[in-house]
Design a protein around this nucleic acid. Structure first.
Lengths: 334, 334
DNA sequence: TTACTGGTTGAAAACGTTACCAGCCTGTAC
DNA sequence: GTACAGGCTGGTAACGTTTTCAACCAGTAA
């Protein structure tokens, strides 16, 4: 089927392309009758402008990309969703881009910056490493979320995050206060993300403070998926059956662990206590309800958008913002 | 920072823009020395072509859009993800587009077809109604998933779906066979999607076959979210406490219902049995594991891509493909 | 010598749109 | 009458690419 261009519309309506363009862009300086005629023709032809041509001609206006790594991560998805909410009414356009686990998000960003003239970036679930230099060198403002860019050499990188160390401390403290001493930590190390390391450090601090020795074999690395956590937990508890509590570095891991425990005849929290991290929606509905560190999704989203706009529109310096997380006491710890 | 164009590169490298374009597109007819020189300059400048200009000039190649409605729906997300897997190695480019609940996905599709010259569409979580005419009128091949387009007037609409009636029947039959007679159905009616209606019909058939009367008040409409199902279930069970089984039309609804029952002091499956629908990952990990109708995500994805490619490349007629779903017996029914 | 080949290259015309500028009217003020 | 403003309109030059065509320069065959 024919795809109509602005020229076709102009011919059919008996006006110039300029006039059609004016109607298309809702400019005021068009006669009402002319406008209606053109609009009628456009409607008949199901006309939609060609974005390439438009973008080519007017590469202006602040275009901002939200780059989400991890489509199947409920927490990051909720965060990106919240971000989209906070972009409403702002004097900028936003686009959401997904990259998968293996991809280089900075190359994606670089591509967007050239291809679509994207001006600013918000990374959701991203990592920080040297590769960010390519963006920083271009003076592109960027915001990292749930991860600190404070002590990096980048001059255009802001960040919004929680105090992972403090929350790791609190999570562990909760377990200690409940009387546990043989506590496992389920998590992992992600290149370019020291959040997990900080949670680990916080947890260690709590342990040290209570003079509880930590058996390194109780730090177990796992994939961040239900299946991964389940499998890891099954083999872990076979070798360390006397463990009575688990600090899981994500809610998803916590669910996998709980399911595994259940299948091994141990119930949560009666036999083993579990505390999670993130506070995704399911944590309120899972059985048992999960005691977890709830990340302030809405605050992170709001601040991220805010700090980026400040950099972009007012040339402000990048800030590094710590927002308050909160430990939600629910049912999985006893 | 300066954004380099092909002209800048040409000037810096002392060649023509044509040559740069050739290098950019890896054409064979460029002298090796010239190619290397141009590539070096491009690397120095972090050059990436402008997608708008390129798209404007070469709107060719089969571009296919996967339009996903419902970012927070785990089942639809898994389906879209699987689709992406099956596009590997195909002679076409795919792009994934999200539309939110309120948006008109056909307008989105129309826009994509004009803006990016998208040739074919796969709708994930879409609805079928008259608005699809705009695409059908343009001869754009489209595939609807998890929903039948069989008895529509569209000549370019294929579809891939399960036998919702049969699966609704099986789900209900499972409950009946377990001895239940006071069974509630939690679901809803979605405009343009008769899948739920078919599941309902199937369930009714099973009831009729077993000569069990159905109390219309036990058909309860709910939002398709944990929270929505939870709230609905709480008020429902207050008015109909003697209900002993629930057929939930999605796993998410099932989880909300189970949580609500738990909070009302009823356990699943001891007091109330629940069967879900979709078979998302969490259904294997929830406590109790959910007995549910598992949609063959991989089959739906593969067939959808296949039938669209057949229409696009070989001009074949749209087909309407029924794939086999399977009732997964797990722990939530007794 | 001429003719022709193949490997490289560049000039210029698109692609569909918007921005700028100039030009037409009609009406109003001098 | 002239001048000028304001509303409306159209012609044309961009935007950054790719594509088409022509042309160059060896080298080789006749």
């Amino acid at each position: 089927m024919k795809i109509y261009t602005i020229k076709d519309i102009a011919r059919k309506a008996g006006v110039s392309v300029t006039t059609v363009s004016r109607v298309l862009n809702k400019r005021p300086d068009v006669n009402q009758a002319t406008r209606e005629k053109v609009e009628r023709v456009m409607a008949e032809c199901h006309f939609v402008g060609n974005a390439n041509a438009r973008g080519l001609k007017q590469p202006d206006g602040d275009l901002i990309a939200i780059i989400l790594r991890g489509r199947d991560n409920p927490f990051l998805n909720a965060l990106a969703e919240a971000m989209l909410q906070h972009t409403q009414g702002l004097d900028a356009s936003f686009l959401m881009e997904f990259v998968d686990e293996q991809a280089d998000e900075f190359q994606t960003a670089l591509r967007l910056s050239h291809e679509k003239r994207v001006k600013g970036f918000i990374f959701v679930g991203g990592r920080i490493d040297e590769r960010a230099k390519v963006l920083d060198g271009m003076d592109s403002p960027m915001v990292f979320t749930t991860i600190s860019a404070e002590n990096t050499s980048f001059s255009h990188a802001a960040s919004v995050f929680i105090d992972d160390r403090a929350m790791g401390y609190q999570a562990m403290k909760t377990l200690i206060d409940a009387g546990h001493t043989r506590i496992a930590i389920f998590g992992g190390i992600r290149q370019g993300d020291d959040g997990f390391a900080k949670r680990y450090t916080g947890a260690m601090d709590a342990l040290a403070e209570a003079c509880i020795p930590f058996d390194d074999e109780r730090f177990v690395q796992t994939r961040f998926s239900l299946r991964g956590a389940y499998d890891t937990a099954r083999s872990f508890f076979e070798s360390k059956p006397d463990t009575t509590a688990v600090f899981a570095m994500s809610d998803t891991i916590a669910f996998g662990v709980i399911r595994a425990l259940q299948d091994m005849g141990k119930s949560v929290p009666a036999d083993v206590s579990v505390v999670g991290f993130d506070g995704i929606e399911m944590s309120k509905f899972f059985i048992p309800r999960l005691t977890t560190v709830e990340q302030p999704v809405d605050d992170i989203a709001r601040e991220s958008v805010q700090v980026l706009m400040d950099m972009l529109e007012r040339g402000e310096e990048p800030r590094h913002i710590i927002v308050d997380a909160k430990l939600q006491i629910r049912e999985s710890v006893q």
